[in-house]
């Protein structure tokens, strides 16, 4: 299946939406090793795209290129109409539009939960502190841990920390949320609480790109699933297509191992 077919398979509800993330022939090298080989994909506004694939397939690298935590060497990445170049102002602009949630949470351990969330709104968005704190509290409410605002990250469980990390990203009111294996570092009983928050987010209509191994989540909320291997997008399709009728052998092999 070719990449051109990818958008045609996408959900009808997104047909007339604008392009949010456009990647064309993105190449990324680590020394001699090519981590991304001409990755081309378009993610529409409001779409929930799940990227899966075996480890080392380049899916984390790709998502990290989108807010330039990694620098791509070939091809173009355009986010919300802004092209990612070395221009610092473009990078800062994209980063304030794109939220990111990491596998390791990466909360700031020396700040309270509330300070973690309000830091960027106050200093990047220049919001008054009171307003930022009110928003932070409502976000904590939304992710289900309003009572933890004054604690330090080290006092929270992994699942709670990851929900704080989601709230921290949402505080910048991003148009796109990137999730880089958000549940991989969690104990099994905590995965659900994070996935519930993510499902709620997906239904709220924000554009999401999620790298994950949680196939249940993908089946339930994804508009599109992209399967990567060896730095390439191998197969793209709706969850229905992907789980019931995959065309590529490599996809079938992957699914047989993971399901």
């Amino acid at each position: 299946m070719s990449i051109d077919d990818a958008t045609t398979v996408a959900n009808d509800r997104l047909a007339d939406r604008e392009d949010m993330i456009v990647c064309v022939d993105v190449d990324k090298f680590y020394g001699d090793f090519q981590a991304l080989k001409g990755v081309t994909a378009t993610i529409k506004e409001g779409e929930v795209a799940v990227v899966c694939g075996p480890s080392g397939s380049g899916k984390s690298t790709w998502i990290r290129c989108i807010n330039r935590l990694e620098v791509h060497q070939g091809g173009d990445i355009v986010v919300d109409g802004i092209e990612l170049t070395n221009d610092l102002r473009n990078i800062e602009k994209i980063r304030s539009e794109v939220g990111m949630v990491f596998q390791q949470f990466n909360l700031f351990p020396h700040l309270t939960v509330l300070d973690n969330i309000t830091l960027a709104p106050i200093w990047v968005r220049k919001k008054p502190r009171a307003e930022a704190e009110a928003m932070a509290r409502s976000l904590l409410d939304r992710v289900g841990i309003p009572e933890q605002a004054e604690k330090f990250p080290g006092q929270l469980s992994g699942g709670q920390q990851q929900r704080v990390a989601i709230a921290r990203s949402l505080a910048m009111e991003p148009r796109v949320m990137l999730f880089d294996e958000p549940t991989s570092a969690l104990d099994p009983e905590m995965i659900k609480e994070v996935l519930d928050v993510m499902k709620e987010l997906a239904r709220s209509g924000i554009t999401m790109m999620v790298v994950t191994h949680e196939m249940g989540f993908a089946r339930e909320v994804a508009d599109r699933i992209m399967f990567m291997e060896g730095g390439e997008i191998v197969e793209v399709g709706t969850p229905e297509h992907f789980f019931t009728n995959p065309t590529e052998d490599r996809t079938k092999l992957f699914l047989s191992q993971i399901l």
Binding site: F102, F108, H110, L119, A120, W123
Partner: peptide, 29 residues
């Protein structure tokens, strides 16, 4: 850790803000 730098970058802090709010307080501690 690298993650702290990345998280600071990802929420849109400038390099100076990242140093002043995230890196130095932890490093000095």
């Amino acid at each position: 850790t690298k993650g702290q730098y990345e998280a600071a970058d990802a929420i849109g802090l400038t390099a100076a803000q990242r140093t002043g709010f995230i890196v130095l307080p932890q490093a000095l501690t």
